[in-house]
Amino acid sequence: MHTGWSLPGGTVEEGEDFSAAFRREIIEEIGVSLDLVDLIEVQRKKFISPQGESFDFLLAVFEARMREEELPGPTDDAIAEGLEIALFYLADIPSEMILGDRQKLTHHLKAS
């Protein structure tokens, strides 16, 4: 199990495209609606489990604006997954981020 902050994420379900999966995961994990959804990067990745099993996958990175002015309380899915949800100013992005998420944020925020 990973510890630390991360960007919201999940898997694409059968019949979904990347954008639909992104919107669904945001609603499930954070409980907010999105505007201005933009796919900004697709990365080819390889996952290797501690048991040595591996598989290739695509990682889609999105940029979007939430419609709400504040975060709602935790969603049922966030509670079930033990997630803590928070917003951060650019200068306060946690250093304890997993899966290279801090680098993704700083790279894409500097580019915008």
Rank of each mutant, 00 (worst) to 15 (best):
K45V: 04
E16L: 02
L83S: 01
G9Y: 08
K46R: 14
S112R: 15
L83V: 00
P94R: 09
G31P: 05
L105Y: 05
A78Q: 01
I79D: 03
R44L: 10
K46D: 06
A111W: 04
L39C: 06
I48V: 15
A91Q: 15
K46N: 10
R23D: 06
V32Y: 02
S95M: 12
L7D: 07
R102V: 05
D101T: 12
R102G: 11
M66D: 05
H107N: 12
P50H: 09
R23E: 14
A80W: 00
S49G: 11
L34A: 07
L71K: 04
L59A: 11
V42A: 08
A91M: 09
T3Y: 11
A86Q: 12
E28V: 00
I98D: 07
I85S: 02
A21E: 02
I85F: 03
A86N: 10
S33F: 08
H107S: 14
E13K: 13
I93E: 08
G100F: 04
A64V: 00
Q51A: 15
L59S: 11
A64Q: 03
A86L: 05
H2Y: 14
S54V: 00
G82A: 04
R102I: 04
A86T: 02
R24M: 02
S54I: 00
H2M: 10
E63S: 14
A20M: 06
I40Q: 03
V42Y: 01
A86V: 01
K110C: 09
G100T: 02
K104N: 06
M1S: 15
E81A: 08
G73V: 01
L90Y: 15
L39E: 13
S112L: 13
G100I: 01
L71D: 05
T11Y: 13
L90S: 14
A21D: 03
H2F: 14
A111V: 02
L58T: 04
E13F: 09
L87V: 09
T3V: 07
V42L: 03
G9C: 09
M1Q: 11
K45Q: 14
D17P: 01
K45E: 15
D77H: 09
F88H: 11
S95R: 13
W5F: 14
D38I: 00
L83Y: 13
I98L: 11
I27Q: 12
T11M: 12
S49R: 06
D56P: 00
F55V: 03
F62C: 05
W5C: 07
K45I: 03
M97L: 09
T75Q: 04
S54T: 08
P74A: 11
V32K: 03
A20R: 07
L105G: 04
M97F: 10
V12Y: 02
S54Y: 11
L34M: 05
K110Y: 10
F47M: 09
E63Y: 04
F88S: 06
